[in-house]
Design a protein around this nucleic acid. Sequence first.
RNA 1: GGAGAGGUGGCAGAGUGGUCGAAUGUACCUGACUCGAAAUCAGGCGUAGGUUCAAACCUACCGAGGGUUCGAAUCCCUCCCUCUCCGCCA
Length: 430
Amino acid sequence: MLDIQLLRNDLESVAKRLVEERAYVLDVAHFQALEHERKSIQTRTQELQAKRNQTSKQIGLAKGKGEDVSAIMAEVADLGDELKAAETRLVAVQDQLNDILMGIPNLPHESVPAGKSEEDNVEVRRVGTPRRFDFSVRDHVDVGEGLAQLDFATGSKLSGARFTVLKGPLARLHRALSQFMLDVHTGEHGYTELYVPYLVNADSMRGTGQLPKFEADLFSVQKNENEKLYLIPTAEVPVTNMARDEILPLESLPQKFVAHTPCFRSEAGSYGKDTRGMIRQHQFDKVELVQVVHPSKSYEALEELTGCAEAILQKLELPYRVMALCGGDMGFSAAKTYDLEVWLPAQNTYREISSCSNFEAFQARRMQARFRNEKGRPELAHTLNGSGLAVGRTLVAILENYQRADGGVDIPAALQAYMGGKKFIQRPSS
RNA sequence: GGAGAGGUGGCAGAGUGGUCGAAUGUACCUGACUCGAAAUCAGGCGUAGGUUCAAACCUACCGAGGGUUCGAAUCCCUCCCUCUCCGCCA
């Protein structure tokens, strides 16, 4: 959520930036009309409230002295109706303003490249060299099914399309990956490990920006007649929302958390995309990094956090590149985003495996996540998060990059300790 | 799932219709005393919004939402959460 003061004071230029940098059209005239109405109604409401309070006090005093109060009572007889009408209207107007505000995307940081789509993203650096294969490369589906350890048919039997069953060593490799990532981030990067709920309430989804705009992307369950719970699409939601409605002590910043959770996404609107394989699933595991930081440190923190995610790829010796997303390709809440893209030889391209973003105060303002600043005043914190990494896609990358001519898959050196010393995976002999 | 108790300021804890945004204690900050500290004394000490150059003033907030009333922390309704006991259970 943008600061409403920014819109009040500088509506035209904010609207201009939203169109140019985020392709978002703000109805300036409508907003202005609402804001104008809000101002006059709020003033009127508060006047009426003051009058009511004053009069009620007088009645109390007069009654205490045993005086007749019918004259004063008559004076406020019709005040109640007018006040109620004003209050109702005020709430309605504020709701409308709030709806607009909740639907406006974040403004990009000045360092974000201009652009409308993926095409305009800028490559920041490229690390590692894609391996040369002296045999014809298979994609992860062929490799995994060839090993009889990756089973899409059974996944769809159990749950439908976009669900997968892993078996044997490959299932273990999947587990090994998340253990490895957690160990690196807690042991080497100073993140505190968390275990968090996978079902969260609507307030939490609003806090990080999934609601109200992206309900279609979420799975939900009915908790009871009145309440829904949502399956988390990323650990970002529960972890970041821990700071919701808090005023954190200055010395507690920066807060750095890592959590391994499953993630659930309905993938509405991407029906034709990545239907083959486990690139795009309804359920996948992710190790997520989250930071809550002092506003003056958030861009430093974005570089640090991105580096932590990169460290995993480096340790796994997977070639990747870092992309600075352009304004048009960034997520709704982000002020700046780096995507890490891992090399997938079968697709002969780099594919997203991590997304690291600084949200500045956008999420913090929605969820009232604050800290007590140097002057002792509450101030909105900045929040960041990034995948470190998406476990399923990392597994895909290993299957493709570490495949062997005989159909087996070598296990990256960094993971061998997590695999009981095994150096490769092959098809069971029987 | 059943029975009961309760949700008030950082914490503790009063307040059952009228100067209550809220006593008191404690923590914290400032000052006095002290060589310094402790103790003691004095003062300060919630969040958000509005009008405003500012000072200041006004408004809202006592788990959430609604209702009664001239007036609600206090009465009524719905919901949420916490605790205790019983049952069930990974």
